[in-house]
C-alpha cells in the first residue's frame, strides 16, 4: 500500500471530470467520498476509473457513523471493502462523528462526548473497519458547535488514545480545528500540540462561514463553501513548522463548488506555504 503523495490536491466532483480529463497533470491525487460511487457501476464508475488511472486516490467516507452507540452497518462496510479492492486507494479515512440514527441518515457529522465509554466504542468500530479493509484508516477530527460536560479527554488526547489503541492515523482537518476553537472559546494554535501529530496522514483545508449573533458572538459554520481563510492558512503554517514534514494536503470545497482554476489557486497557495514553512520562511 503506497502512501498519498505529499502534495496539495482537491476533492474531486463529477463536474470536474471533463476538465481533469483534459488536464490530468493538475494534481497527483484526488479525494472522493466512496458513498458517491457505491451501488453504482457504469458511467460514474468508469469516470472514477479514468481519474484513478492518472492520479493516486483517497477514499474519504462520510457514512460509517463510527462514533454511534449503535452497531456498525456491516453492509455499508462491505460496500466500502468492494471499493477499496477495486480502486486500491492510497488512503482510506472516516470521521470522529456519527451520522445515522434509527434508519435515518442525517448527512451531517454529529458531535460526541470525549469519554472513556465512547473511546471504547470508537476503538471497537475502528478496529472492525480496519480488520475488514485489511489496512489502517485515518480518522478526521470534527468541527464542533457544542461541547459536552464531563469530557474525560480533550479532543487531541482522545484522538491520541484512539491512534495508540487501534493503530489508525489522523486526518487533521485544520479548518475544523479552527472552527471548533472559535465556537468553543478555545485557542487552536495552543491546542495543536495536543494532537498525535506524528500520526497525521493527511491534512484538510477548507473555507467556512460566519454567523453573527445579536450579542456579537460568532458561530463558525464548516460549510466548505469558500476559500480557506487567513487564520487557517496560519494554522497550517504552524502545523508544518511543528512537524517539520510535508504532508498530503486537500482543499475541500463542497458547497457551490467552483471550477479547477479556483481550486488550483488554493492548491498553489498550500504548496507555497508548505515550501516556505519547511524552509523557515514566510509565504504570501
Amino acid at each position: 500500500m503506497k502512501a498519498l503523495p505529499d502534495t496539495a490536491a482537491f476533492a474531486f466532483k463529477s463536474r470536474h471530470y471533463e476538465e481533469l480529463k483534459a488536464n490530468s497533470a493538475v494534481c497527483d491525487w484526488v479525494e472522493v467520498h466512496p458513498e458517491n460511487y457505491m451501488q453504482t457501476s457504469g458511467v460514474r464508475l468508469a469516470q472514477l476509473e479514468q481519474v484513478r488511472n492518472n492520479a493516486a486516490l483517497s477514499l474519504h467516507g462520510v457514512g460509517m457513523s463510527l462514533a454511534s452507540e449503535q452497531s456498525l452497518d456491516e453492509s455499508h462496510l462491505k460496500q466500502l471493502k468492494q471499493m477499496v479492492d477495486r480502486f486500491q486507494p492510497h488512503s482510506v479515512s472516516e470521521h470522529l462523528a456519527w451520522s445515522h440514527w434509527n434508519s435515518v441518515y442525517y448527512n451531517d457529522l454529529l458531535p460526541i462526548p470525549y469519554t472513556k465509554e465512547l473511546l471504547q466504542q470508537m476503538c471497537l468500530h475502528v478496529e472492525r473497519v480496519q480488520e475488514v479493509l485489511c489496512r489502517p484508516i485515518l480518522i478526521e477530527n470534527p468541527s464542533l458547535l457544542v461541547r459536552y460536560r464531563g469530557n474525560e479527554y480533550s479532543e487531541g488526547e482522545f484522538l491520541g488514545e484512539l491512534v495508540t489503541r487501534t493503530g489508525c492515523g489522523l486526518l487533521f482537518d485544520l479548518n475544523n480545528l479552527y472552527v471548533s476553537s472559535i465556537n468553543l472559546s478555545d485557542n487552536a494554535f495552543e491546542q495543536l500540540a495536543d494532537y498525535p501529530l506524528k500520526s497525521v496522514g493527511e491534512v484538510h483545508l477548507a473555507g467556512h462561514s460566519v454567523e453573527q449573533l445579536e450579542d456579537g458572538t460568532e458561530l463558525r459554520i464548516d460549510d466548505h463553501g469558500s476559500e480557506v481563510c487567513d487564520p487557517v492558512w496560519e494554522l497550517y503554517r504552524a502545523f508544518l513548522q511543528l512537524t517539520g514534514c510535508r504532508v498530503p494536503t486537500l482543499i475541500e470545497w463542497d458547497t457551490d463548488t467552483p471550477g479547477l482554476d479556483v481550486l488550483t489557486t488554493e492548491m498553489d497557495r498550500a504548496e507555497q506555504i508548505m515550501a516556505t514553512a519547511l524552509a523557515g520562511g514566510e509565504a504570501a
Binding site: P111, Y148, N183
Partner: peptide
C-alpha cells in the same frame, strides 16, 4: 449533558438542524 455555559445552545443546535 451539553454544556450550556457556552451560551446560545439553541442557536448552536439550530445549525445542526439546518445542516
Amino acid at each position: 449533558r451539553l454544556d450550556e455555559e457556552l451560551g446560545h445552545i439553541e442557536r448552536r443546535l439550530a445549525v445542526y438542524r439546518n445542516n
